[in-house]
């Protein structure tokens, strides 16, 4: 796999010592500033399109909102007081948390066992990779389209209701299949399980299979191996996957809006409404609160598992 060209021996032995000395001197001199140059474009983009905008959102959240004028520079806590004293916002947070926990639980169970199946049960590596790709391809297609595609399946005259009535299981079409909490959760699981499978699969694929054999030889049960060997060794993937799923669900408004038919909302859909009335300061204050909540969850996950060490090593 590595360096097939080296075998061809393109470099003559005579030039070796000189070029080698030059190389080492050169590369040690280069090391000092090269990484800064290499990371500069990334840093620039992140500053310009992440750090500064977030800082400005914080600033604007203390501004005043005036009809027709919009933003008025000020230093007021009114927006925050507005949000925190409004019971609607609390119930929005509550419902978002509810969705987050349910979706996290379902995607974790699915993600863990599907990865486990691919890594430890499928014996042919090429088959495993092919099956893995089958799971990941929808990730690269449009989320909105994938969401809408549930309509002809779950709707009143949809496939499931047609099938149930056709088989005589139900006399009336089931109304709770679409535009309900149920359809919202279905769509979340449909969209976000990938984010759980990919990192967990990655972690599991790195587990040395001989560890499992050793555990079995040591008398561990099948369940014991999963619980005491596989689960702890895939915790980076689980942490990363949870981070994705939690932040995606917390920050979502399109799935909730479309799949609940406007019946449920999320924290972000509250923001969405403010924005439509051009009330930027209150939307910004709402954004800051949401950001703090999301960051706290992220920090908690990073505390549990040192994701960075595992990634960069």
């Amino acid at each position: 796999m590595s360096a097939p060209a080296l075998k061809e021996g393109r470099v003559s032995a005579a030039t070796l010592p000189a070029s080698r000395m030059k190389m080492t001197a050169d590369s040690s001199g280069r090391k000092a500033w090269a990484p800064y140059l290499q990371v500069a474009p990334l840093t620039l983009v992140l500053l310009l399109f992440f750090a500064i905008p977030v800082a400005l959102v914080v600033v604007v959240s203390f501004f005043r909102y005036q009809m027709l004028v919009g933003l008025v520079p000020d230093f007021t806590f009114k927006n925050y007081v507005d949000i925190l004293t409004n019971p609607t916002n609390w119930s929005l947070y509550l419902s978002t948390f509810k969705f987050t926990i349910i979706v996290l639980a379902i995607t974790f169970v699915l993600g863990f066992w599907i990865s486990y199946f691919l890594v430890f049960h499928v014996r042919n590596l090429m088959t495993a990779i092919a099956l893995f790709l089958i799971c990941t391809v929808p990730f690269w297609t449009s989320n909105i389209i994938r969401m809408i595609s549930w309509r002809p399946v779950l709707g009143r005259e949809g496939l499931i209701n047609q099938a149930l009535q056709g088989m005589g299981v139900t006399a009336q079409p089931l109304d709770w299949l679409l535009y309900s909490d149920f359809s919202v959760i279905v769509a979340y699981v449909h969209l976000y399980t990938l984010f759980m499978i990919v990192p967990i699969f990655n972690s599991m694929a790195r587990i040395d299979k001989s560890l499992l054999e050793a555990a079995v030889d040591g008398g561990a049960s099948r369940w014991g191996v999963v619980w005491n060997v596989v689960l702890p060794l895939s915790k980076t993937g689980i942490a990363l996957g949870s981070l994705f799923v939690v932040t995606l669900v917390m920050g979502d408004f399109s799935v909730v809006t479309v799949m609940s038919g406007g019946l449920s909302g999320s924290v972000t859909s509250g923001m969405f409404n403010d924005l439509q009335f051009l009330n930027y300061p209150r939307a910004a204050a709402n954004a800051v609160i949401l950001l703090i909540v999301v960051l706290l969850i992220a920090v908690a996950i990073f505390r549990l598992v040192d994701v960075r060490k595992e990634l960069v090593r």
Binding site: F49, F50, I52, P53, V54, L56, V57, T247, M250, G251, D252, F253, T268, M271, F272, L275, Y280, A283, A284, A287, L290, L291, V294
Partner: peptide
């Protein structure tokens, strides 16, 4: 970061 938050920013 939630996409909408960044969008506002």
């Amino acid at each position: 970061i939630p996409g909408l938050v960044l969008s506002i920013g």
